[in-house]
Design a protein around this nucleic acid. Structure first.
Lengths: 207, 207, 207, 207
DNA sequence: AATGAATGAGCGTTCATTCAT
DNA sequence: TATGAATGAACGCTCATTCAT
C-alpha cells in the first residue's frame, strides 16, 4: 500500500511521486534482480533525488515492502476475477490453469517470482506477504476442487491445492519469458489439466 | 617464452585452500543469499585474507562459477546413482520421486535453488550451468518414463519429463526447510507418484 | 518528468566545498605527482569524507578534468594580461619572455607541467585541454612576432611561435624550482630574447 | 646496469631473464605511463611469475633504476658517436641537431621523457641519473660550441649548451610521436641551427 | 515536497612484498 | 632459478542514510 500519513495526509503530488517510485522500483527489480537493486538506481529511474526518495520511504525495507504489496495486490485482483466466473467447475479449473500458466510467460512474472522466493528465504516480512498471496491463490483452487469432487475431505482439498499450485509455480523457471521451453507452454497446460483432474476425481490424495 | 616449465600447476596447500574457499562461499550463499554475498565475507569465513582469495579466484564471477560447478557436480552424481538402480521401472520412478522431493527439505536445497533461479535470470553463464544440470535430471526421468510406457513418442517423453521435473522443483518454496508445508512432504510424494504415473500410462500428453 | 524545478543547482556550501577539493587536488598533484595521486588523499587534504568527494565529482577523471580546467584558466588569464600591454612590440616580447621564464621557477609550474605532459600522452581529454592552452600561448607570441617583422608569412609566424614556446617550455626541467640551473634563469632570458629576436628580424624561418 | 651478484655471479639464463624483464618494463612505461606501471604487469609482459620478478629485482625502485640505467646507456652511446665525428664544427653541430631533434619523433623518446621529468621531480636517485645524462649531452654540445667560437668563456659555453639542450628538449611535447606538430620537425631543425649558430658566433651570451 | 551536502561502511580489485616449495 | 601461496594496505567507487536548505 502507498505510504499513508496520520494527520493531514499526503498531498496529491506526493501520492503521484510515490506511485512513480514504486513503478521504478518494480522495473528495476525485474531488469536487474534484487542483488543489483539500489535506492540510488530507483531514484534515478524515477527522476527524483535520493533525498526525496528517502522522504517518501524512510528505508530500503519500507520501499521493498510497499512495492511488494502493490505487486501482490495486482495478483489478488486477478484471483478474485478468476473465482467469480460463472462457469462449470471443470471449465473454471481449465480457465484458471490457462490463465496462471500463460502468466508465467510474461517478463515480469518470470523475473519477479524467483526474486520473491529468494527474498522470502531471508526476510520474514516478505515471506509473510508472499505466503498470504499463495493462500488466496489456493483458496481459488480449493473452491474449484471441492465443486468437482465434493467427497474429498478438507485436508484432501488442501493438499490437492498445495500440490497443484506448487507444481504450476515450478514451471516459471522452465517455460518463462525467454526461457528454453516457452514453446511448450500449451502442452504444459494440457498435462496439468489432465493430471490434476485425475487426482481430484480419483481422489488419490492422502488424508 | 623464456620458461618452458611454466605449467607446473598448483601446490597441495593451494588446492586445499581453494576447497575451503568454495565451501565457505556455499555456506555464505545458503545463509545470507546472493544479495548479501561478498568476497570479504567469503574470505572471513574461509579464514584467509582478501588478497589470497583473489589469488585463487581472479574475480567474483570466477568464484561463483567454480562454486556452482562444484555444487552441481554433487547433484549430477546423485542422478547417476538414481539412474543405475536395478529396480523395476515403476519402483524406480517411486524411488526417484522420493529422493528428489525429500531433498527439497534440506536446508541447502531449499535456500540455494531460489538463488540459482534468480541468478540464472541475470547471468548467461550461470543459466547455462543450471540448464545443463536440469537436462541430466530429465534424462533420468526419461529413462523411467520410456520403460513404463514404451508407446510414447520421443516428444511425449520429453514433455512428460519437463512437466514432472518442473512440478517437483516448484515445491521447494512450499515444503522446503522451515517452510509452512514441510509436514506435507510425504503426501506430496504420493500425489506426484499417482498423477505422474497416470500421465505416463494413460498417455494423455500432447504430441 | 515529475519535477519541473529540478535544475535548482548547487548550494553555496557546495560550491565552497568544490573549490576546496580542487585546491587540495592541485596541491596533491604538485606535492606527490600523478602516480601518487589518489582520491582518498584528496579527500583527506580537503578535510571531507570520500563519499562527499564522490558526490561533487562523480569520478576520478571528472575531478582531474575540473582541476586542470581551473589550472589552465589561471594561465589563460595571464596570457590575456600580457597581450593587452601597450608597449612597443620588442619591449612587449621582452616582458613576455621575462614573465613566462620566471614563472618556470615557481614550484607549481615546475612540478605541474611534467605531469601534464605525461598525462597528455595517455589521455585524450587532457591532451586537448593542454593543446588548447598552448594555442592561446602561441597566439600572444604571434601578435608580437608579426608586429616586429610584418614581412613574415603566416606560416613563418606560426613556426616561429612554435619554436619559441617549445624552447621556453623545455627549460622547466633545468631552471625550475629547486633544480640545478635555477640561478641561470636571467641568462636564459637574455639568450632567449637575443636569439628569438634574431630569428624574427632576419626572417631565417622556413616557409 | 643489470643486477650483479657478489659471489658466483648470475647464471646465464638469469641474465637473459633480467634482460627480458627490463625490456618488458620499458615497453610498459612507454605504453601506459608510470602512473599505470606495476610489477604485476611487467611480470605478465615478461612472461614470468611475480615471485620470480621479485627474485631478480628486490623492489619496484630497484627495477626502475635498472631500467633507467639501461635506457640512459643507449642515449650515452649515441652521444659518443655524435661527438666522435670528424666533421667541421658547424657541420657537426648541424648533424647533432638533426639527430637529437629527429629522435624526438620516435615513440619511445616522446613517451618516455615526460615520465622521466615527472619522476625526477619526486625521486632523487632518478633525478641524479637523468641529470648525469644531460651533462654528457651538454658536453657534446660544448665541444662543438667552443670549436665554432673559441673566444667564448667557459661559463658562456656552459650557458649556451644549457640553453640549446633545454630548448631542444622542450620540443618533445610538440613535435613528438603522434603529436600535433610532428610535420614541422624539419623547420624546427632549421630554426634551431640558425638561432643557435647566431648565438654562438655573435657571442650574445651573458657572462 | 523536494534538493543538494555530507557521512561512514562496504564493495571488488590491484598492488608490492614475503615466503614456502 | 623459478613458481605458487599468502598478506595487508590501498585504490576508485557504490551504498543507505541523515540533515540543512
Amino acid at each position: 500500500m502507498l505510504n499513508t500519513r496520520k494527520a493531514r495526509g499526503p498531498y496529491k503530488s506526493g501520492l503521484k511521486t510515490q506511485k512513480t517510485i514504486i513503478e521504478a522500483a518494480q522495473n528495476l527489480l525485474v531488469d536487474e534482480g534484487y542483488h543489483n537493486f539500489s535506492l540510488r538506481k530507483v531514484a534515478l529511474k524515477a527522476g527524483i533525488s535520493g533525498g526525496n526518495l528517502q522522504h517518501h520511504f524512510k528505508s530500503k525495507e519500507e520501499l521493498i515492502v510497499a512495492m511488494l504489496d502493490s505487486l501482490i495486490t495486482v495478483y489478488l485482483e486477478t484471483f478474485k476475477t478468476l473465482s467469480d466466473s460463472a462457469l462449470a467447475p471443470k471449465e473454471r479449473l481449465r480457465k484458471i490453469l490457462e490463465h496462471v500458466i500463460l502468466d508465467l510467460n510474461t517478463k515480469s512474472t518470470t523475473l519477479l517470482f524467483p526474486e520473491l522466493w529468494s527474498l522470502s528465504n531471508h526476510d520474514r516480512r516478505i515471506s509473510e506477504s508472499v505466503d498470504g498471496m499463495y493462500e488466496r491463490y489456493r483458496a481459488v483452487l480449493k473452491d474449484c476442487i471441492v465443486e468437482i469432487n465434493p467427497k474429498l475431505s478438507a485436508t484432501q482439498v488442501e493438499k490437492a491445492a498445495l500440490f497443484m499450485s506448487a507444481s504450476i509455480e515450478g514451471h516459471t523457471v522452465f517455460i518463462g519469458y525467454k526461457r528454453n521451453w516457452t514453446h511448450h507452454t500449451h502442452s504444459i497446460i494440457e498435462m496439468a489439466y489432465a493430471s490434476f483432474l485425475f487426482l481430484i476425481e480419483s481422489g488419490s490424495i492422502p488424508e
